[in-house]
Design a protein around this nucleic acid. Structure first.
Lengths: 192, 192
DNA sequence: ACGCATATAGGTCAATTGTCCTATGGCTAG
DNA sequence: CTAGCCATAGGACAATTGACCTATATGCGT
């Protein structure tokens, strides 16, 4: 009866489904029953792969970090100009506008929720932001702005978060496009 | 045995406690038991004042709208220069930095949570943003920027949200101060 | 002093939650 | 072919949730 899958495949499928549900509905609002439905597995079976829901959250954060690292690496290897790389970063907001208008930024909303829950994984979630922060800092250093590269990086990150937040509240595509343009213009002459 | 309070006082105390708890812990993570503990009332008693938890949420949103309206009115009546009024807006981030680092922006985090829950009160929560948006728009109009006053207003709102989001993730007071300064500088020569 | 609408307490309810347990299926090593 | 481990299913668990109910206490109008 039971379909046979390699354990790593099942484990990663649980994590991928949880990743999507945590993003769409939030961590607390996602139950084991929800993950069971979407994976097609039985509820009790999760505890063979994970000791607790928090352990699934840790795996989801690890997955998001790995994906973020890969995305940043690709940009760094495929886009020669640091300025263009950061434009690629800004364009996530355009590419993912539908999901962002529906569920916000995956990183920002997770950090916000975990902060309210006073959840232990709060700092680990913020580490995903740190990946972007350090990557952006490196781009500004490459642009000869080593003096305040981190502050400039935080400014870019700040604007991306603000855009995502208001995009969710107002669901306004034109606003996103306008602010991404403004961010792109700022990136061509970054100053604080 | 039972202490006697005027009904409106009890009702508003429920709303005020719920307002604080929804902010600190989130709407879903706050239970009737939590509100009961902090109000000193019995759980069952809530249903005399509110038909459901959603009705408490609606009252909380109304309370926040009323407080926002009052705050904006005070700024408009006590601060003659529109530019200075908007500086007062930006300074909320400094004044409330401790709470923002702990729980984020009350409006932004509520909108984000309700969006994920696909909650019916989502648009009502966004209306609080609209109060700020329209108020900021009026300030830019007063500054002679009627042509794109709304876009400028959304930009200010966007930056306040971005600052709050990263303030929660990184808990960095210096970042808040730096970005509020940058926002103040932008406000002296607003351009998109 | 009395009656009645208002307000409060606290119990009860089914549903859902994360967690844990056990039985059983299938695969592989020998 | 068989023994044994890996993987899965599905039920059971206590705790918690939002919601509902009823009994009782309060204070006002008369």
């Amino acid at each position: 009866m039971a379909e046979i899958r390699s354990p790593s495949s099942v484990r990663s499928r649980i994590v991928e489904v949880a990743d999507r549900l945590f993003y769409e509905r939030g961590f607390e609002a996602t139950s084991f029953a929800d993950i069971a439905t979407d994976t097609g597995l039985s509820r009790g079976n999760f505890y063979y792969h994970f000791k607790s829901k928090d352990e699934i959250l840790a795996a989801v954060i690890s997955l998001r970090m790995a994906r973020t690292r890969e995305m940043l690496t690709v940009w760094e290897s495929e886009t020669p100009e640091p300025a263009d790389r950061m434009l690629a970063f800004a364009n996530i907001l355009i590419t993912n506008r539908a999901k962002i208008m529906a569920h916000g930024c995956p990183v920002g909303t997770l950090c916000a929720e975990l902060a309210k829950l006073e959840h232990g994984a709060q700092d680990e979630a913020a580490t995903i932001f740190t990946l972007f922060r350090d990557w952006l800092t490196r781009q500004f250093v490459a642009l000869g702005r080593a003096d305040n590269a981190d502050a400039l990086a935080m400014h870019v990150l700040m604007r991306s978060q603000g855009i995502a937040s208001l995009a969710t509240a107002f669901r306004d595509e034109a606003f996103i496009a306008r602010e991404v343009d403004a961010l792109a213009a700022w990136l061509s002459h970054p100053k604080l």
